[in-house]
Computed example of a mutant assay.
Amino acid sequence: MPSLNTELFASWALAQNSVSEDEVLQRARQRGQELGAKTIDPAGRALLEVLCSLHRPRSVVQIGSGVGVASLAILRGMGDRGTLTVIESDLEHVGALREALREDRILGARARIITERSATVLGRLNDSSYDMVLIDAGHANLLDYVAESKRLIGARGVILISNAFDEHRLAKPAVRQASTVAMRDAMRMLREDPTMLCHLLPTEQGLFLAVDRSA
């Protein structure tokens, strides 16, 4: 286990601060600030785009849209042939997402936006029909989202959970806040599944990654 020293922190900070973002992403983040919406951090966004570029998913589900920052990362990374299904019930967030997609000149056919509650929509999606699921919503229903995500992905499918550090409460054993407990339980659920290969990636907010290795 690495020691927590100033050199380690400096290296981590260098990695976090080496990410640059274009004007489309910057404007999306500004809209997020105006709406008080949580958005994936720049390092997490860049990592998500790289993962999608490497994995090349054809069909992705995003639970919770934020304001489109993570959606842009997925769509840019997956290439022109991929499609993204976004589930978001907050109409202001949906409006911000649509604006980000327009500014990035992403064709409407590549992004299906469902303006209903995730708990209602997920059960209607087909088993093993998606290459990736990003959980980009609050942790109140996280265990249900993870269970549905495991059903939705096919062989070699990927599950990602943003804000995995839960506002940096996760590393504090004494913290028993509901969202923190839910995150711990979700990580345990995935790690204890012998078909899943998991890792917690140390971006600013934390990004938890699980890959189905059953194939």
Rank of each mutant, 00 (worst) to 15 (best):
R156G: 06
E192R: 11
L200Y: 00
A171R: 10
A178E: 12
D193S: 05
N163I: 04
V181S: 13
L207R: 06
I135K: 00
T180W: 03
L207Q: 06
L152C: 09
T203N: 08
L170Y: 10
I153D: 03
A186W: 05
L209S: 11
M183W: 03
R124F: 02
L209R: 10
D166C: 12
H199S: 14
L190Y: 00
I135T: 06
L207K: 05
M132G: 05
R184S: 13
V121Q: 06
A178K: 07
L142K: 00
G157R: 01
R124I: 05
V181T: 13
L134N: 03
H139F: 08
H139D: 13
N126E: 15
G157I: 06
G123S: 01
V146F: 03
A171E: 11
L207F: 07
H199W: 10
S129V: 04
S162H: 09
I153E: 01
L125E: 00
L209I: 09
T203R: 10
R191H: 07
T195G: 07
V175H: 08
D166Y: 04
R191A: 15
D185I: 01
I161T: 02
L160F: 08
D212S: 04
I161A: 02
R124T: 12
G157W: 01
V211E: 00
G138M: 02
P202H: 15
L160N: 10
L197A: 12
Q177K: 15
I153L: 00
V146G: 02
D144H: 13
M187A: 15
S128F: 02
S128H: 09
R176Q: 14
D136L: 08
C198Q: 09
P202T: 13
T180A: 07
R176S: 13
A119Y: 00
F208V: 03
P173L: 06
S149K: 03
D127S: 12
N141F: 04
N141P: 07
D136K: 07
L160V: 04
A186H: 01
L190R: 02
E148C: 09
V211Q: 11
N163H: 12
S179C: 14
L125S: 02
L200D: 01
N126D: 15
M196I: 06
V181M: 14
S149Y: 02
H139A: 14
T195Q: 10
L190H: 06
D131K: 07
K150L: 11
P194Y: 02
C198A: 13
S179R: 13
R156H: 08
R169M: 05
D144W: 04
I153A: 01
L152Q: 01
R156W: 03
A119P: 05
F208N: 06
R176H: 10
D166V: 14
R191G: 10
R188A: 11
A182L: 12
A186P: 03
G154S: 07
H139K: 14
V211T: 08
T180V: 11
S129C: 06
V121N: 09
